[in-house]
Design a protein around this nucleic acid. Structure first.
Lengths: 211, 211
DNA sequence: ATCTGACAGTAAACGGGAATCACCCAGGGC
DNA sequence: GCCCTGGGTGATTCCCGTTTACTGTCAGAT
């Protein structure tokens, strides 16, 4: 009996998942755990177990834990970038573009709270700067897409205060502020999310941009 | 020779630091390390070494690591609360009170980035809700002090959009947004901090509050 | 003077994280 | 048939927060 329990090495070993197909498996499993349990909850061992592979195997495909999770973040932000690019080609007023982009941004954050925290609330120390590069670049691309319309508005002399640069940063930050607080402090007595987003958008757009 | 090296237990042991005096030593050492190296860098062992005591000894005075660091955060927020209380008694316009409180808030954040992150950017999962209670209560007190003038403004019918509740939350969030981003992403090309704070305050106040 | 017990220490260990090590094996080109 | 290589493995290392079981010290009651 006890002898029968000892499996031969062959069947105990997971067969090769040739090439980047295993990489995809890992990302899928990691994403599921990460979304369900957050950064700390998504341990290397859990991810490896979910894939059915030893924890060491993950290091074949990714340099370290952060690389795995940042890759998930990267993919998510690619969606956000796609949204922004699409919006920037809509045939509408620059202000309306800005409004829609910020609205999409906040909804994205609330829909993907764990990912949002990972990418936009990450303490600068937890994950080193170089590691964040890929994600950071995409974030910059999103911001560039967003600051295009802002520059238009600034060029039209419709900025009530600040430069195109600072106005864009402040608009972004205001939206980041409300969603990051709602996400990280869910136990507070928040007004309804829709109202918060609405008031933020209205307030900040009217405050910074002239009619 | 080798015999001489073996110290008697007596001298190897750190004498008692009677009562809450040792507690203060621990907090002081922990704060120094925490400010220099952040949450993850401030390990129990490092703090204990700095005090000159075994790591176990910290558990005589604090339930766990979070208690130590949250205590540091608590003390810091007490200062912020004191500022807000002082400002709320100044003989100025309610709007001016709000402006000064938010300005003080942002400067506090930039002056104490690690503490700010610990208290206001803490992912909800990292530190359990009950543990945060003491700090959270103080944060609420600050917010109450801040929302007093806002309610005045709302009562005077000067709110352009939203309720007193949502307006207060949005104003706070806008300020939180800019400082939290500047703190956690210091490598981005930010406009000068003074300008960002100025534009944020002007924009959001003009956007939400009528003359 | 001595006993006692609460208090403030300690060393050692535990369980669990990330990451690394030395090794192993199936498959494809030669 | 041989060998190289890439995807695997278990054992190990190091560090973390925390727990356990023990020890020295001292104030105060007996």
């Amino acid at each position: 009996m006890t002898v029968a329990l000892k499996k031969p090495t062959r069947s105990a070993r997971k067969p090769k998942g040739d090439g980047h197909m295993r990489r995809g498996e890992i990302l899928a499993a990691a994403e599921k755990i990460f979304i369900a349990e957050g950064y700390a909850g998504a341990t290397i061992r859990k991810i490896a177990d979910a894939v059915g592979v030893s924890s060491t195997a993950l290091y074949m495909h990714f340099r370290d834990k952060d690389q795995i999770l940042l890759e998930i973040g990267r993919e998510a932000i690619e969606q956000l970038l796609a949204i922004n690019v699409a919006l920037s080609h809509e045939p509408v007023d620059a202000v309306e573009k800005v409004r829609r982009m910020l609205d999409a941004y906040m909804r994205f954050a609330l829909d993907n709270p764990n990912t949002y925290q990972l990418v936009f609330c990450g303490s600068s120390e937890a994950i080193s700067v170089e590691k964040q590069q890929a994600v950071s670049d995409l974030g910059d691309a999103c911001f560039d897409e967003f600051s295009g319309p802002i520059r238009e508005i600034a060029a039209a002399g419709r900025l009530k205060t600040g430069t195109a640069e600072s106005a864009a940063q402040v608009l972004w930050a205001a939206c980041h502020g409300i969603v990051s607080l709602v996400i990280t402090k869910p136990s507070r007595n928040w007004a309804p999310h829709e109202e918060l987003m609405q008031v933020t958008l209205d307030g900040v757009l009217h405050g910074l941009i002239a009619e």
